[in-house]
């Protein structure tokens, strides 16, 4: 479904990603793990072009994702107009939720469908209420994000991504900004989505969650994919560096 080929990204001549290949198939749950600074988030943000790759090819459902940059290395105005086709099909959940603070929970959920996909308001509201029920927050529909806990905000953010009926959702460290006791409520919803067959790409430090939910795990280090395999292959790997990384992660968690 998503194909990344030869992806390169550097910030001011400092390489962050070098020659990354990744293929996400429909219905697959892929976790990306690795030490900080490995380029996990950058890779995820390159997929929907929040970061502009320096080089490489991207495609969604075999349709190439094309873009041009301006002199400052940002997306050109024309590309920003054109890329909406891809972005409306690729959902994103951020580490810091990024709910629109000037809108109520309900308005956060219907903004994308109404503005981007031109869904009639009534239908969007019905769908939004259904999604809020699914994440257990129907009673918060008229609250502002500032009135919710971190875990509740992240659940709303997941519902906002789902409201667009995306083909795939990218999760950028969705639980890293949460209090430890709120982590499980977000992970539970993500596990439920995985079970329902949603295609998901998850950058995470939650190793046991990644092991339990993923179909595949990608281990990244120093801007490249070091290992790509099933959870069993990754967690039983003989690779000394991977073993050391996993040990340090489980020690930190335990």
């Amino acid at each position: 479904m998503i194909r990344v080929q030869g992806l390169q990204k550097s910030f001011k001549n400092k390489p962050v990603l070098t020659d990354v290949d990744l293929h996400i198939r429909e219905g697959e749950v892929v976790s990306i793990i690795g030490p900080s600074g490995a380029g996990k988030s950058t890779l995820l943000r390159c997929i929907n072009l929040l970061e502009v790759p320096s080089d490489g090819k991207l495609s969604l459902d075999n349709r190439p994702i094309q873009f041009r940059t301006n002199r400052q290395g940002k997306l050109s105005f024309r590309s920003r107009m054109q890329l909406t086709w891809m972005r409306s099909q690729v959902g994103m959940v951020f580490q810091h939720f990024n709910l629109w603070t000037h809108k109520t929970v309900l308005d956060n959920l219907i903004e994308g469908p109404c503005t981007v996909k031109k869904v009639p308001r009534k239908a969007a509201v019905d769908k939004a209420m259904e999604l809020l029920k699914k994440v257990g927050l129907a009673d918060k529909a008229n609250d502002y994000p500032a009135d919710l806990s971190g875990g509740q905000q992240q659940r709303v953010a997941i519902a906002r991504a789902l409201a667009m009926e995306p083909k795939v959702i990218l999760f950028d460290e969705p639980t890293s900004a949460l209090d430890p006791e709120l982590v499980h409520e977000v992970l539970d919803i993500m596990a439920k989505l995985a079970e329902e067959g949603m295609t998901m790409v998850i950058v995470t430090h939650e190793m046991s969650f990644a092991r339990r939910v993923s179909d595949r795990i990608v281990f990244m280090e120093k801007g490249t994919v070091k290992k790509d395999g099933t959870p069993d292959e990754i967690f039983n790997s003989e690779d000394p560096r991977l073993y050391q990384f996993l040990r340090s992660m489980t020690h930190a968690a335990g």
């Binding site: 929040l50 107009m81 909406t84 972005r87 990024n98 603070t101 994308g112 503005t115 981007v116 996909k117």
Partner: peptide, 23 residues
């Protein structure tokens, strides 16, 4: 305006005009 607010608008597929007037 917080960068995350704008990124959320971009990620959901708003074009530059929608992003300006909605967010």
């Amino acid at each position: 305006v917080n960068k995350g607010q704008i990124e959320a608008a971009e990620a959901i597929g708003m074009n530059p005009f929608q992003m300006m007037f909605k967010v």
